[in-house]
């Protein structure tokens, strides 16, 4: 039990990202509306970004922008949060918005063809046109 509590307190960010991810995944699987699915996808992707950002965090460190950079001096890596996950997640966010854009475009097309966004209705229409 104690172990569990220490786990929970020391890693709650990691846990939270899993909860979020599962919410997103659930929406993608269980929701029939296409835009809901896309929202689920976005949540899923942000959850992973949250995880990455959590990797980068460092106790007692400040944001990864050098303070007083004009002064020449030794930079101690302990002082700054790990910038690499941030870089990766910037890219991932861009990718996710690009994906969202394309997905919405496709949704528009789907709506043009089937006049509904509900998956079950679309399937119904495909079966009995």
């Amino acid at each position: 039990m104690e172990d569990f509590l220490t786990q929970l307190t020391s890693k709650y960010n990691f846990w939270a990202y899993i909860v979020l991810m599962m919410v997103g995944l659930y929406a993608m699987i269980a929701k029939g509306n296409l835009i809901k699915k896309l929202i689920g996808l976005s949540i899923f992707q942000t959850a992973i970004m949250l995880f990455y950002v959590a990797i980068g965090s460092k106790a007692g460190a400040t944001i990864p922008i050098l303070r007083d950079h004009t002064l020449k001096g030794v930079i101690d890596f302990v002082e700054y949060i790990n910038p690499l996950p941030h870089v990766l997640m910037l890219t991932a966010i861009v990718v996710s918005v690009a994906t969202l854009g394309v997905a919405l475009a496709l949704v528009l097309r789907v709506y043009d063809v089937h006049q509904t966004l509900e998956e079950d209705e679309i399937l119904e229409k495909i079966k009995n046109p």
Binding site: M28, R109, V113
Partner: peptide, 12 residues
């Protein structure tokens, strides 16, 4: 488009 959207969801 529907097939591609499906692909997009799964692929993403």
């Amino acid at each position: 488009p529907l097939a591609s959207l499906n692909y997009l969801c799964v692929g993403s």
